[in-house]
Write a protein that binds this DNA or RNA. Structure first.
Lengths: 300, 300
DNA sequence: AAAATGTTTTTTCACGATAAAAGACATTAT
DNA sequence: ATAATGTCTTTTATCGTGAAAAAACATTTT
């Protein structure tokens, strides 16, 4: 097996959802744009849809014959990218404990355990290295630096520097910039979530990311924007791992976001600075309390 | 051919230099530590040294028989890492012009042109992507973002943020910190270079990097320290590319460094800030003047 | 007993090969 | 003429493989 067809399977699943909405499907290039894949993949999808009796396909005409059933969909786990699979496995190991700082990481062992080739693991580790949690010894193994207190502090230090600057840039944006409309939409979503926080508190994580990414984009600096990948990654797994007081934490955070948004809209740099600092401080504390306070091992 | 033995060749060349200094070589583990390679490689080296009559090798005794000749050394180009070779080729293409923003980068083509496997090129591009000059389209090609004015400005913005903070941290370091001794040594090197600037101006680049890395290390933040890799990389190729007024530029920079060092030693945060800002401003201008002022293509 | 050498095993690095997916070109339909 | 479909080519993603290099284990020397 050399390459899984997860792109096809994922696009196929998303394609099935289109069937409920129309009587006939659009042209191949249009479908390609819609699903974000090439025509080659679209044609493979259409061929299968015809085979399973979902559509009648003859050149331009692609008539929907029936609505998709549950068993028409490919299983979720077959639509994942290899790198997603590797990332999940790796992070599970990392967070499942026993991942002491200084520990060696073995490409071959990881690859065998996950059941993939070494090349994919290597590429994953190289990409992952920019998160500052692992480090390569030339011609030798990778070293785990550990998800330590020091790491969290270094991460949040940069985050605060970048976000304060981005927030200031945001507030200085002209009246007619489209970001203000985006901000209004996000504000509405926050209010809605605040009202139903008891039931929907676990939807905050996704909203949080969209909100902060909007602000960082105002910096117009690719290094700042890209750095949010590091933060998002860490917070993503941190949220999955640490569910303690999740509801309360998120409720507080939503309120802080609303204050932050109000400050941005006021365009008062002093208020923006204060609201941003306040929110980032509690984000940092949340992260810190979830990290066990054992001393980091000395680095060789 | 699956893997070149450049590690061995490079270590062998460095090992030859040891021969001039002693009558007999130390133990295998000691040699390994000295040259930064494993015992396996050391034994391959010793085997060849015996073969070419450089030493007599019997278990613990490794007697030097003759001094190495020029033709004992492996050619320089055979000691390069594959990733160094790829990086050089890639940067040459990038800087040789015709590298417009938005241009596609083709792994296969690059690999063929350089004469290496695609895996190595892929891994290089992944590592290189953190410099912010290229970007990947999923399941498709890489896109060149271009060495533009915008890039230089974004880079220097972060640099200034990080270095101002590091410099302040540096100045606040306690009297007994070993960095002050390092700084004194660097100061001496600067003075020496300043005196002989006419002949040695091209040695500045290396000194520059060591100086700034020392300062950044005071931040004790891995993201700040690692970011200097991006700066070093850009300045390295920029210096190679743009030799205009090199002597004058470096002469100015050495003077600025000396002022910067004096400010640090004064521990006066105001002075440090001013000296740091001054130097970074002229570094930015140097970089900017070397970039043609054509408008960046609109990003899709 | 500690450290070196000798030997064997494991891991990393890099390649070519192959299926999936994208992209280019040719042909046909509106 | 433009846009779609049909067909063919190229590129990307991933694996297995093998040599280089590291690491582990066994044996000898001081």
């Amino acid at each position: 097996m050399s390459k899984s067809n997860n792109v096809y399977k994922d696009a196929y699943n998303r394609g099935l959802r289109l069937l409920g909405e129309t009587k006939s499907l659009p042209s191949e290039p249009e479908l390609g744009a819609l699903l974000g894949v090439s025509r080659t993949t679209i044609r493979t999808i259409l061929a299968r849809m015809e085979e399973t009796g979902l559509i009648a396909w003859n050149k331009r005409s692609k008539t929907v014959l029936r609505a998709p059933r549950l068993d028409d969909f490919f299983p979720e786990e077959e639509t994942d990218t290899l790198s997603q699979i590797i990332e999940r496995s790796f992070m599970r190991r990392l967070l499942a404990g026993g991942a002491e700082a200084g520990m060696q990481i073995n490409e071959l062992e990881l690859a065998r355990e996950i059941g993939v080739g070494t090349t994919s693991v290597r590429e994953f580790l190289i990409r992952f290295s920019r998160f500052g949690l692992i480090e390569k010894r030339r011609n030798s193994h990778w070293v785990l630096k550990g998800f330590t207190r020091a790491f969290a502090l270094e991460l949040t230090e940069i985050r605060e520097m970048f976000e304060l600057r981005s927030a200031a840039a945001f507030a200085a944006l002209p009246e007619d910039s489209p970001v203000w409309a985006d901000l209004d939409l996000l504000e509405d979503e926050h209010r809605l979530l605040a009202r139903e926080i008891a039931a929907r508190f676990n939807e905050f994580s996704e909203l949080d990311e969209r909100f902060h990414r909007l602000i960082h984009r105002a910096s117009h600096n690719r290094f700042i924007v890209d750095f949010y990948d590091v933060i998002a990654m860490i917070f993503h797994y941190h949220y999955q791992w640490n569910k303690a007081q999740e509801r309360e934490r998120n409720e507080v955070a939503v309120a802080e976001h609303l204050a932050y948004i109000a400050a941005l809209k006021s365009r008062d740099l002093g208020k923006v600075d204060a609201a941003c600092r306040g929110h980032l401080k509690s984000a940092r504390n949340t992260l810190l309390t979830s990290i066990p306070d054992r001393a980091a091992l000395p680095q060789p």
